[in-house]
Every structure is written in C-alpha cells, then in structure tokens.
Design a protein around this nucleic acid. Sequence first.
DNA 1: CTGAAAGCGCTAACAC
DNA 2: GTGTTAGCGCTTTCAG
Lengths: 343, 343
Amino acid sequence: MTFAGSRRAPTLRDVADKAGVSMMTVSNVINARAGRVSKDTQTRILTVIDELGYRPQRSGRSLRMQREYAIGLTIVHPDRRFLDDPYLNEVAAGMSNALANAGYGLMINGVQDIDGLKKIVAHAAGVDALAVFASGDRESRHEIYRILERLHHPLAIIQDDMPELSDTCSVFQDDFAGARDLADSLLAAGAERIVFAAPTHTWPAVERREAGVRAAAHRRAKVTRIGCNETDFQAGIDQILSAFDRLGIPDAIVGANDQIGIAAIHAASRRGVAIPETLMVAGFNAFPFRQFSLPLISSVSSPAYAIGETVAESLLYRIDNNRFANPKQVLSVAPAPGATIRN
Amino acid sequence: MTFAGSRRAPTLRDVADKAGVSMMTVSNVINARAGRVSKDTQTRILTVIDELGYRPQRSGRSLRMQREYAIGLTIVHPDRRFLDDPYLNEVAAGMSNALANAGYGLMINGVQDIDGLKKIVAHAAGVDALAVFASGDRESRHEIYRILERLHHPLAIIQDDMPELSDTCSVFQDDFAGARDLADSLLAAGAERIVFAAPTHTWPAVERREAGVRAAAHRRAKVTRIGCNETDFQAGIDQILSAFDRLGIPDAIVGANDQIGIAAIHAASRRGVAIPETLMVAGFNAFPFRQFSLPLISSVSSPAYAIGETVAESLLYRIDNNRFANPKQVLSVAPAPGATIRN
DNA sequence: CTGAAAGCGCTAACAC
DNA sequence: GTGTTAGCGCTTTCAG
C-alpha cells in the first residue's frame, strides 16, 4: 500500500524540467492559451503531464490570481440534516452543476442558528462569493444577511430579498402568483372557506404564498391560517385534525408546501373526509415525492433547480464583471395538476 | 453601493503594520498558539483585526501548509439532480457538519457518468481527500474507483468496497443483516412467495439487500426478483402491476428502498389488494418521506447521517496520521416498524 | 514561440 | 515574547 501523503505531488516545475521547457510554457499549455506554444512542444508537455500524473495545485493559482474558484452555499436551518428539504437539494444540484461548468466548486455549509453562522464566518475565506438560504422569521433572516454582508463577498439571497444590502442579489420564484392562481382554481371549484396551513418554523416563501392565496380570495372566500409542524409529520397531522375540530371541515386546505398538504390528506383520511369531493387540498413545489401521496396532491411546480443555476450564474457574472447583471430575479412557477382539486 | 471587488482585502501585513508588530505575531494570535504572545499585544492585535475586518486568506495558508482544508464528495448518478435521494442528503449533511467542526469545507460534485467524472478529475485539485458514491453496476463502479485512485488522494467509498485499492477506506451500512431480519419477519408472518423489487438503474446496496432476503428465505420461501424503475414513479408502478399479472399476487414485496416499496403500495391499491392482509410490503432506509405513504410502509432505518460523519472522520484521521484507522466500517441498521407487515 | 524574474499571503524554523 | 528569512506553486510582465 502506497500512500499519497508519502510522496510529494509533482509540480509545474517537475513537468517543465522533465519536458525540458520553462514553467511558463507548461502553464500556457495547461491553460490552453491559443497559439503561444508550438504543436510539438505541446504534445511533449502533455505526455509528460500524463506520465507524471501532474495536476495543478489550486492554492498556487488561487494565491496568484487572488481567486478561490469556489462559491459557498450557506443554509441556516434548525435541523442538522439541513439538506433534507428537496428544495435545497435541487438548488444545490443546480448550483453545483452550473459552477462545475465554469471550473468552480461549491462549498456547502449548514448552520443551525446565528451563533453557528458566526462561527463559520470566523473561518478563513475559501470562497469568492456566497449564496444563502435562511429559514426563520423576517427579522432573524435579515440579521443573517447583514452578518454575511460584512464579509465583503458578493452575496446571493435565495428565496428572499433585502434591498438595502450592498453587493447583493436575490433570486426567487414567483410564489405570490403561483399561490394566487392555485387559489383561483379552488375558488372556481366553489371553495368559500380556505385554510392556509403554514409551518411553525417559517421560511421566506411562506408569507408570499399566504399573500397570494389571500389576494385571490379577497371578498370571495374566507382564509384562515393554521400552524402545522413540518418536521414532525404526525404532529402536523394532529394540528390539522384539531383545526377540523375548531373550525369544522373547510372547503379547501392549502399547505405552504407539499409535505404539509400531504399531512392534510392524511388528516382527512383519518376523519373519513372525501378528497376532493368534500375537501380539496393543495400543496406547493411539486417535487417528485408528491407522487407518494394518494390521491396525487395538486400543487405548483417549483423551478428550484433553475434557481440554483441562476444563483450560480449571477455570482459568476458578478465575480467577472464586478457588478451584478440583475439584482433581483424572479422565476415563474407552473401549475402541477393532481387529483385533490375538483374539475 | 460599494463592491468588495473594488478594494483590496486586508492582509496579515496590513494588520501587523497597523498594530506595530511583525506578521508572525499576528499569525500566532490568529492561530491561538498558546503563550507565544503577551496578553497586551494580543488584545491590541485583535482590535486591529476587528477594525480592519481582516480574515485570513485561505490560499496563502494552503500553499504554505500544502493543505486545502477541504474534502470532496463526488456523486456519480445519471440524474443531474444528483442530490434528490435522501440517502445522499443525509450523508452530505453528516459530512459537512463533521468537517466544519474540524475547520474543513465540503466540496460537492455530481457527475452523470464516467466521462463527466474524467472531466472534473482533470481540474485542479482543491481538496485533500475524496469521498465517492457511485450508482450503476459493479463493473462501472469499480472503474470509477480506479479513476479516483489515480488522483492519489485518500479515498472513502460510500456504501461499497473494493479491497484491492490502495489508500482507500469504505463505509457502509449492514444492508445484508437488515434485509435478512426484515425478510425473517415476513416469513414469520407466513410469506412463502416473496418478490424483491430492484431498481433498473442499480446502486451498491441493492445486491446486499437482495442477498439478505434470499439468505432468510433459503428453503423456506421462494424469492423472485423484478425490475422497478425508480426515477419514473408511475413507470415503476406499472412494472409492479405487470409482475402481478405474470406471477400473481405474491405474499410479500420487498422494495430495494422505500420509494419502490411505496410504488408497490400504490400498485396494490390500484388492484384493490389489501395491505397487509393479502400482500405485505416492505421498503428500506426509513427516511422521513416514508410517512407520506398510507399505510405507513414497514422499513429498515438507515444510519445515513452517521455514515457521512464516519466518512468525514475517517478521512480527517487519514490526513492527519497518514493512514486510515479502519479500512472498512460497517454501521448497523435498525427495524423501522410500519403497518404493511402483519403481526 | 519561449524564458527569467517577481510576488501573491501565509507560516516553520530559527535568531534575538 | 517578538522579529527575520525563506519559500510553498502558480501566473503576469517583460525580454529575448
């Protein structure tokens, strides 16, 4: 067994020496600089690189170029399993893929609260820019963004915005319009009493979704907000059941996301309430797992993956051009039909 | 609006000059080196650091220390949304948190196939070690590991192993025992014809889970393997329905994971087959989404998060000590009772 | 088309 | 307890 650590990795100098050229020529070959190296020299150098198994060392280049070639994604979420939400998975995958195309890496960090955030912020800066997704109420989210602003890195805020920050862009989806159109279809099916089920630990889009539902319902239906624990599924079902007891069975329940909508389906099933005949249900985001629900929950499909790509592209543009192309980008959502809304 | 890019970030030298000390003294303060700096000097330096908003630049330290302070997680998966699987979320979160505690970052990369892998491998090395999760058949997985071995980084293989590789460790869960015990409970409930539903695009644990089921069933029940598309849920349901047509309704279906098990529940529901009275169903891994299934799928809970932590700790140990403490670690699984197995 | 020199920010080793 | 020196691997600049 040989260990990598036991022998020094080959450097640019090793390649140059073995190929009998200067380091600069090797560098030109590696960076594919057009027409600076003769064909012969190039193939010779490439052979040596292959023989030696040479790979450029990022820290040397980073130091010289004053660039880390990496972007951070920081997620502030009370659960240590901070990637469990499909929304974040897709954002992360979209970012990672878009960054990889540009030769950048994605560094992912999850922190549970503001103290955790301060701790990682104290670390050395290994990124050129940051993206952040924060759950929690508006005030604590804004504190989070302010802490990150002080790092003097370009910042992209996901699913939220805070216009007073400098050197920041935000990218989100049109939750308001999506929720409004969703509620419209409930109204068209005759809903007059709508329950909006919001998570007890909130996140930025919840407010916009509730506002969209209320805008559609305005003077046509009554909207009641209830809380629904999102992390403990059974507790969430119980909360919906107790809402049934307090308020009676409404015409429709809109969950702040599909998880909550599915909890409503389970609650209805326990009470023997027919979906969609007696009670209509809707969720939000339409990630693949919604197909596990029976009947299939009607939802609104989220462009989460595209949001990740957009975040990455915005930050890369900012890094190269010293300004954001577009400080606020809103991606549109689309209806995701299911079997829990009539018609 | 001021942009970070427009002004040079303060360096160690700036701090040293302003505090009237040498760079080395500042370095000693930053790295909290015991008793090398007087209390007075220390507080003066800390004040200056705060005033200037100084944060050490990782590339300088990396170059000097020959260490990147980052570990990579490479996922080889045909879907570009490579983090959609809860297994990988939890592994990634576990790794990220364990690494952050040690001052290391996690760089996540997803590639769709071996060509994609070769492309990112050609990039500069920005990590000290690598973890890999590969789906696909045994042969292509082994090719993937061999490619990564050539990078001469310490490597941790997740949910798989390949003993002939040097400088490599593997970490996985005891899928065999979990599946065997699961099948035992099916046998105890009287199952004689068991269907094992495996995904069409396989991944490492599938073989071990099937082997566990077969070991339990040995001479006591007949096990038939069917394919079930895991990425297209509806197609998977159709495959199970057509297996019903070909083979009749078995006594039990064991899905290679919960997604597939839930597809079996849906298929049974379409045929009006009673669960668990007529057909028992089981899945594997017991991530939170299994609660969306109705009835709750019986499963086996996976220590995926702990696997992530273990991978991180193993690699950190390897980096510091130039050898792996334990080249092969198997974490145990636990029954996750549900309502789809009788008794 | 190729080469030599200088320096990016940081820290180990050693002097004082 | 503090300062000096040297150099990690790479690329920009400028000379040939």
